[in-house]
């Protein structure tokens, strides 16, 4: 099979609810694939099935040329997973956790420690932070350690569920850098995110899922076209067109008021003068405060 991920008629039900409904798509090797959809659309369920963490009711799923449904262990050895909620052994330090992951993937301890060090440096995780317990980590640090654990064995396919959820711009940039580096090395990345700007920047192709069914799949231009939008449309526009951003329009929070209604213009807070880097006197106005 030529695809890194091949899915055909995949279906998963939870009692009455169809979480994944007859989904078919494929992702080539070295592709950065974004899997998008509103909350509860079926993204995480699909990822779990593809990672061998959940059994599908019917259909086919192949990852790295192996059948996930028949041999999930073989697939797990070839992939890396960063779950949305990192529920791990949080009484270990970041370094211990990464090394333990390496050992569980069959690496020698020295090699696992070496790789963990490189990964942490790449992800800008300070040396002292590596020796802290994971339970004391911020969300961004947890994501970085989770990513280090997922990458330590050199996976062919990487599954990331909301990797940028709740992390700051600096951590986001560091993680993005690592991911782009991986794609350049031929690793396939399958990820879900609600940060559409990042998806637009990173992904070569996207798939959009709603109520368990795949609505569109292709490049952003192809997806925009299938949604009946102009070729230059942003992913955000496409997303809003498909899912409708008009909810609640015409309603007003009439009880909320930040300022008294009859405030005089002069009493509004004046613009703040911020020194510019290029003039020592601090005479420049960096930003004008909008008038009330």
């Amino acid at each position: 099979m030529d695809s890194a991920i091949f899915v055909r008629n995949l279906t998963k039900r939870f009692k009455d609810k169809v979480a994944v409904d007859n989904v078919t798509f494929q992702v080539g090797y070295g592709e950065f694939f974004g899997f998008l959809g509103p909350n509860g659309a079926g993204k995480t369920t699909t990822i779990k099935i593809l990672c061998g963490l959940m059994k599908a009711d019917s259909g086919e799923a192949h990852v790295a040329g192996l059948n996930v449904l028949d041999d999930p262990l073989a697939v797990k050895a070839k992939i890396g997973v960063l779950p949305d909620v990192i529920d791990t052994f949080d009484r270990l330090t970041g370094n211990e956790l990464a090394v333990m992951s390496g050992l569980l993937y069959g690496l020698k301890e020295d090699e696992a420690a070496r790789r963990a060090g490189v990964l942490f440096e790449l992800m800008d995780l300070k040396r002292e932070d590596r020796e802290k317990l994971v339970i004391d980590y911020s969300l961004g640090m947890r994501k970085k350690v989770g990513l280090a654990c997922a990458l330590i064995h050199g996976p062919k396919v990487l599954f990331l569920d909301e990797p940028f959820n709740g992390i700051d711009p600096v951590a986001t940039a560091a993680v993005q850098r690592v991911l782009q580096n991986l794609v350049a090395r031929g690793v396939t990345i399958f990820f879900t995110s609600h940060v559409l700007e990042v998806v637009e920047k990173l992904c070569t192709r996207v798939g959009i899922i709603q109520n368990g069914g795949l609505l569109a799949c292709g490049t952003i231009a192809e997806v925009a076209q299938s949604a009946g939008m102009a070729p230059g449309s942003t992913l955000s526009d496409v997303f809003n067109k498909i899912f409708g951003a008009q909810a609640g329009e015409g309603r007003d929070l009439d009880w909320v008021a930040g300022l008294p209604p009859a405030i005089e213009k002069e009493t509004a807070i004046p613009p703040v003068a911020v020194p510019r880097a290029d003039d020592g006197a601090g005479a420049g106005i960096a930003a004008e405060r909008p008038e009330v």
Partner: peptide, 13 residues
Amino acid sequence: LYDPQKLATYPIP
């Protein structure tokens, strides 16, 4: 008892 779900992503029979 360690929750086996914490080890679910690893290739352990």
